[in-house]
Amino acid sequence: MSETTTPSTALPEISVSADKVTSVDTEPKNTFELRNVNVFYGDMLAVKDVSMAIPHNQITAFIGPSGCGKSTLLRSLNRMNDLIPGARVEGDVLYHGMNMYGPKVDPVQVRTVIGMVFQKPNPFPKSIYDNVAFGPRLQGRNGNLDDVVEEALRGAALWDEVKDRLKDNAYGMSGGQQQRLCIARAIAVQPDVILMDEPCSALDPVSTGRIEDLMVELKKTYTIVIVTHNMQQAARVADRTAFFTVLANDETGSRTGVLVEYAATTKIFSKPDDERTENYVSGRFG
């Protein structure tokens, strides 16, 4: 994944149709292409019929009321759903045109290419250094990892704060530092994509601001998909925003998440096509 020149203005405004997706054969502008994706937990359809394209080296935000399947869809992008017994994905999830759920695809390998940062900072109860070195060591890189660790910590804007206490336990850090450590840990694996599931929801505004700045910096190198319940955050950092909602079936009592509208963030927040989007972003809903 070298730098590609992706003119951000050239992105399609409306959700990408299946025809358009298949016709992509020039520059790989889209990291992910989803076609009619359904995600189930056992018999329960949690996310229904999502089709969208997630552009390369951009920040794409998933917003919507809680329970609409944002996390579920995000976790289908690096096969974290495989870890939940009974979870199942239908439809096509393409990563640079490759079917992520194809028979030869190894979920473990997938996650080295597509990393993830979680809602609650979850550093390992090890030293700061060992946290960052964890991924490289998994990949068989032993010996001196000082350079790798420093680079990842710099990448996560954490180096200056921790360079003198790399051997300290990660749990001695503040929540915001812990979350940036988790980002450093993800970077150290050298992924192409970083998925973030409400990465700031457990953080104070100052730490949140830092992580948002960091995301903008990181998108030069990585494709970022972020779930957020904070609409201002989506408006501040995301290039494109997808709004999801929940449809409740009164007869069966089931609740299913659907993609309502997906477009450039400015459009979603200024003149959305769908009334439900408008109501949500203006705070009249949820």
Binding site: F118, F124, G135, R185
Partner: peptide, 12 residues
């Protein structure tokens, strides 16, 4: 959450 963190980095 610790297990998830490791899985997300490509741990078996």
């Amino acid at each position: 959450s610790l297990r998830e963190g490791a899985y997300a980095m490509g741990a078996t």
